[in-house]
């Protein structure tokens, strides 16, 4: 028996919006500790990894490991039927369950919608991603990161990210010209969510596809801050932290000959 009741059901709606562009089908791996998902995009260039801890649900019940294979577009369509303030409950009966039950309760508890989503067998490749000490870690407003990606897409398909002592610089060069945005590290005691924090072991310069970064910024509504972790010649980690877990995106760099 698997049952997970999420008071902030709107969070699940936002989460699906933030992964559906990148991944079509994925397994939700449910265990005592919570719900996890790891999936690569079709081109094997980007990966999304999300975790929802069991403590974030009320109640949460999972007797043993469940792997629920879901078409994310279908799940997203059903979740659009839930109100933003609804309480969402997910249920599956046993490991051979061929469907996932979803119920949507409104805050007054006088309207309850019930849906069934057919599950599928998904044979998914998982990558082992070790804990990494990154050369540079940047915490910045998520809306600012989204704006930078959107603005530089006008100029080029790629962006170079340079991090030095107290500055992060985003540069794009394309056929029409070039553009760059520099952000200096700032600290705001009153509004820490608006500050740019740079932790640097050594300078980093890496190039990435803006198309994927634009997809990652679909996670912006999940958190006011985004964390960027970079190491020379390593994939970029883009993380949005939530009260009940996180969503992490990994993107392989572009590297010259």
């Amino acid at each position: 028996m698997f049952e997970a009741r999420l008071i902030q059901g709107g969070l699940l709606k936002k989460l699906l919006e933030s992964v559906k562009e990148l991944v079509t089908d994925a397994n939700f791996d449910c265990s005592e500790s919570g719900i996890a998902l790891q999936a690569m995009d079709n081109s094997h260039v980007a990966l999304v990894s999300l975790l929802l801890r069991s403590e974030g649900f009320d109640p949460y019940r999972c007797d043993r490991g469940f792997s629920l294979g879901v078409n994310l577009n279908s799940l997203n369509k059903i979740l659009k039927c839930a109100g933003n303030d609804d309480i969402i409950t997910l249920r599956a009966d046993d490991n051979s369950a061929d469907s996932l039950s979803l119920s949507f309760e409104n805050p007054n508890n006088d309207r309850i919608g019930e849906y069934e989503l057919k599950l599928m067998d998904i044979d998914q490749e998982h990558l082992s991603i070790p804990e990494t000490d990154y050369d540079a870690t940047i915490i910045m407003p998520s809306a600012e990161f989204q704006r930078i990606c959107r603005d530089l897409t006008v100029v080029s398909e790629s962006v170079t990210i340079d991090v030095s002592k107290d500055t992060i610089k985003f540069t794009a060069e394309g056929e029409l010209g070039s553009g760059n945005i520099k952000l200096k590290s700032t600290s705001s005691i009153d509004k820490p969510e608006e500050s740019v924090n740079i932790e640097l072991g050594q300078d980093v310069s890496l190039q990435f596809s803006l198309k994927y970064l634009m997809n990652f910024t679909k996670g912006t509504p999940l958190s006011e801050q985004v964390i960027l972790c970079l190491s020379e010649k390593m994939p970029l980690l883009v993380e949005y932290k939530m009260d009940i877990g996180y969503i992490r995106y990994y993107l392989a760099p572009k590297i010259g000959d």
């Binding site: 094997h44 990558l127 392989a252």
Partner: peptide, 14 residues
Amino acid sequence: MVGQMLLAEFYSFL
């Protein structure tokens, strides 16, 4: 020339 790397070039499959 700049080439797009794949994730499997950095991480191993489980």
